[in-house]
Structures are given as C-alpha cells and as structure tokens.
Amino acid sequence: MNASPDDLDQLLRDYFRAQAPHELASGFPHPEPARSTPLRKSSLARGRLVLAACVVAVLLGFGYMLGGTGSKGGPTSASFSGSSATNVKPHRK
C-alpha cells in the first residue's frame, strides 16, 4: 500500500463520520418528567377499565350462549321464559 498521510486522514474522517449518529446534532429528547407519572397512572387505570369491560363482555356473552343453548330444549327459568315467551309465538295447528 502506498498510503499518504492525507489518504489515511481521509479514510479515518470518512469512517468516523459515518459512525457518528445524526442524533448528536439535534437536541436532547427531553423526558418530560413532570408528566410521566400521571400519564402512567392514567394509562394503567384505563387498562384496568378495558380489562374489566372485556371480562364483563365475556361473561355476558357466555351467559347469552348458555341461555341460547337452554332455549333449544325449552326455557325453564322464570326470568328467561318471561322474556322469551313474548317473542315465541305459540304453535298453532
């Protein structure tokens, strides 16, 4: 290799500049510490609400399915028969 000092300088400059991240030229991404805790709490509460809503929806769906299965064999409970009886027309010959 017939490397001149200028070539080596240029190689090193190219290499290190390619390595240096562009983010160093911009400002620091501030963490906004004052808002971080309340935001976290509210998102946690929101998550719990969503989870509770999902559980309720699953339970309701499960109950509906059980009720639907039961209606095929004929409603037996008073509450169910009361609500379904209004929708079921009596069989007429």
Partner: peptide, 10 residues
C-alpha cells in the same frame, strides 16, 4: 492497514 492490504482511498 498496510499489513492487512487495505488501501486508504476507498
């Protein structure tokens, strides 16, 4: 770099 055969003007 010389020993590794690297040219310095890529």
């Amino acid at each position: 770099l010389t020993a590794a055969g690297v040219t310095t003007n890529p």
